[in-house]
Design a protein around this nucleic acid. Structure first.
Lengths: 229, 229, 229, 229
DNA sequence: AATGAATGAGCGTTCATTCAT
DNA sequence: TATGAATGAACGCTCATTCAT
């Protein structure tokens, strides 16, 4: 995933379609992805997509009943691609759980330094604000990504109950996403990515190792907690 | 700021205008903000803004020479409002630096649970991607917010050199922003915000207290570091 | 007239108006004329006129009930100015009628080489195509200019009946106007103006001197006539 | 050409289009020409053109990428039409050069008495004032028309040097244009066209026959010349 | 006498979509 | 499959005009 490009877009097979039809479908979706990356969601007009893939606007209607349908298929393809990358990379073997956790962080940060990720994710976030379909798909993607973190937390800190484990995974995932936004590809702070990565690994490992069951549960005044650490 | 709403938008005074003109200006910018929050940046068309505030499109052009100018004034007003809130809240006195840091985290997370923040910030991020003006203003706002974190880090861990302090402030700020995205207002995980807040406070305080000068500098394999924690 | 500028615009006195009112009126009309000369009839919008004279668009409505009224007053002022110039210069004394006719031609050609004339007249012609008011005023102006030519023709060739005299005056006037269009100020052929002037004088004088009564009347095949000359 | 109408507009073939597309193109340009003739250049708005030819404004944009492009194609079509007419009529054989010159004058004056010419040319002149593209195309058209006059002058008065011949052709062309403006179709003086035509033929033939080489060159006081005729 | 504020109509243009070919 | 042609709605913006201040 750290070098995901337009070429890697995973596009659904066309039901009962001929080879030619599948080709057209892929050309259209890859053109749309290129535009999304290079010029943002506002560039996703039927005409521009058509121009980008050498077809005419009218022809796109043959493949997609509406623009909305096109966008949803594009979103599916994008998310499938990222999820595929997640699967591959999370399976990377590592000596200890700590090392494997560190490796996941490294991978996420490398990905954030990628043009495709740095451009696509903010667009997805903005879209998901007002399009429930996008919101659900994006949420689903992240949930799937958190599974790996969850497993690692369970290995490192088996005493932690499942819901607290999930909250912790969410914290780490969200934290890394935030760092990606601020210090990703072409961001002014992107030079600080290695240092941020070390901070992330250090603090994540510490909290995973030291979090006590019940420590983050409700009823405790958050303002008081810190001193206890 | 944690309950910032459209009503709180800080709008510049109109020079030499009548009362009616000032009202018009405020109606327009508040209508634009409402649309941004409720329907996203793509809803910011002159006609929709006009309809939202009960004016006609031509009259909007009387107040703003171009749509771009309107958007920039809106952005200024939004950011001024947030910065004003920052100032107020950061000045809240606290017993110890740890407590004040915890309070900042609490504040940020409360704000993330606000509809306005949860809706506005993702839009700003998406706009930033293709509008340098937006990017600069947003970046400037966050930089200003990091100053407070910086000061707190310096109090807690005076040995840390300035650049590492800044990187750490960036990490915390970005981390909180990410959590806000995932667990903010109307997000499925928003119920977990209190727990996430405790994790954030715990891990931030730990890393601020324990980070050694040079520890995050280049030359160290990030994959090896974690074990040291 | 050969050095007519915006400053020379003759503006009607404002009935019962105060000094200040007269000033405003003149500022507006001179601004309009400047725009007409510099940027053409399409630049004559209320806003641009207002901006040109330092007023606001709303204020122009105080002086002129409508844009049409403004344009008609502008047209009156322009035509009065040109007619005034006609009067002055046609009265220039000359030794012989031939010399006076030559002097008129010289004057007309000098005027054609003027920025104001070269810019204003084509606009007037275009306007007059679809605005009867403009057409009538322009026609009236030229008719008045032809009176002088008429008198000169009567002096040189007294045998010519009045209607043929008028036709001849019309021919000369129209001919000069055409040359002005092709070789006037900033036209590619404007360097040829002196030579064109000599051709005009030579041919006009010849035809005025030699035209026989009835020679141009109907009933004669125009295709046959030439050989008789 | 003397009876050039909208129907005769020469419109370029549409490449690779359907029959329907060619029809659409012609409907649009003819509608535009009709508006230019009937209501002037200011009537050439996309919506009015669309209404005139029974299409919708959006469809005009399908044929022409911009209004400017439409206007340029219209101008090309108009000028091609006039030039085509020029070619046809100038080739008309005539007994003597004098007769052929007279015939050209007759033709030009007949054309001036045409609604299309009387309306189109003033608009073209006005457009020329602020649109270099129009200026160049119009100038080119007239230059092409002058070639015929040039050839006739060379036949009648071979001693005249080329540049003086060209100046003389310009004078005649401009003179006729001016007469067309004053006495063309629907002008109050249009009844006098036959008489003006005879004057033109008489005076043109005289000056072409009698002009001496060098006579119109610089150095001679124009005010003195006339007496010599 | 002048400005500020507002309107309704229209501008050139782009958009997603439909449908015949 | 693919294009050409057409539509209706909306876009940002300018216009002349009106009216309260």
């Amino acid at each position: 995933m750290s070098d995901f490009t337009v070429q890697d877009l995973k596009i659904r097979a066309r039901e009962g379609g001929y080879v030619r039809g599948q080709e057209g479908l892929e050309r259209i979706l890859k053109a749309a992805l290129t535009l999304l990356i290079e010029h943002g969601a506002s560039a996703l007009t039927m005409r521009r997509i058509a121009a980008e893939c050498g077809l005419k606007a009218g022809n796109i209607a043959y493949y997609f009943a509406s623009k909305e349908e096109l966008l949803r298929e594009l979103l599916d393809a994008i998310i499938n691609s990222f999820e595929g990358a997640f699967d591959t990379i999370y399976q990377t073997p590592g000596a200890t759980p700590d090392e494997r956790l560190a490796r996941v962080v490294t991978f996420i940060f490398e990905d954030a330094n990628t043009k495709a990720s740095a451009r696509i994710f903010p667009e997805l976030w903005a879209m998901s604000n007002h399009d429930p379909f996008v919101r659900d798909r994006v949420e689903e993607m992240y949930a799937r990504g958190r599974v790996v973190l969850n497993d690692l937390i369970a290995e490192i800190n088996p005493a932690l109950p499942a819901d607290e484990r999930e909250t912790l995974a969410l914290f780490m995932s969200a934290s890394m996403e935030g760092v990606g936004f601020f210090a990703g590809y072409e961001r002014p702070a992107s030079a600080k990515l290695p240092a941020l990565e070390r901070i992330a690994i250090k603090s994540f490992l510490h909290v995973v190792h030291t979090l006590q069951p019940g420590e983050i549960s409700a009823g405790l005044k958050p303002g008081k907690r810190p001193r206890a650490t």
